[in-house]
Write a protein that binds this DNA or RNA. Structure first.
Lengths: 94, 94
DNA sequence: ATGATATTTAGACATCTGTCTAACTAAGCA
DNA sequence: TGCTTAGTTAGACAGATGTCTAAATATCAT
């Protein structure tokens, strides 16, 4: 049951927001962390969970580590989920 | 942030399986419970979580309580999620 | 009313999860 | 080498979650 990790990963609002940000392109751990009112280690934990679920990938460039969505399908998934279950919104496209 | 309950609800494999079963039509609490290796009160707890998330509705008929998906959108959601993240499967339709 | 069946509610308990601080690794630069 | 910046790892801890047993509620049949 490989998908359980994915659903568990999606269960946290911080992680969903991270994925949403990454939907606009890769971003360094630091840049992502800036957006949240949370210490770096906590953010690191969330990155690890998302990586474990294979929702994101990472690459190091010098001192920075860049994160990006693992596949296009995730982008679609999130867009869709956002539309249907979307935090705040209530629109049902299609 | 109303959608958080939905994602939390979807985070448990037992609850996802319940939703999948209900995708085939309404079913009594007992009939559903039969399918799981779990005590009735535990199942009841899962029903409550799904109901709280507005993913299912219930109606009493005599001694039995029938559960059903709350809306078609859930059926679509689950079918889609099953296809993409599906337990076991790896297919990507569309 | 009594008993049987279907299901939930209450409460206990172990495990999982998200956050923190402190310490560590890795890279760049004086 | 030593200092700084970027990020992770380790470990602690409070609160959430999933399961159980025991007891309660609701309905039906005798």
């Amino acid at each position: 049951m490989a998908s359980n990790r994915i659903f568990k990963a999606l269960a946290d609002p911080t992680r969903r927001e991270i994925l949403r940000l990454l939907g606009r392109g890769e971003m360094s751990a630091g840049r992502i962390a800036e957006r949240f009112d949370m210490k770096k280690p906590s953010m690191s934990h969330h990155f690890a969970v998302l990586k474990e679920a294979e929702l994101i990938i990472s690459r190091r460039e010098g001192q920075q580590i860049f994160y990006a969505l693992d596949a296009t399908v995730v982008q679609e998934a999130l867009t869709w989920l956002w539309d249907v279950f979307g935090d705040g919104k209530k629109g049902r496209t299609q």
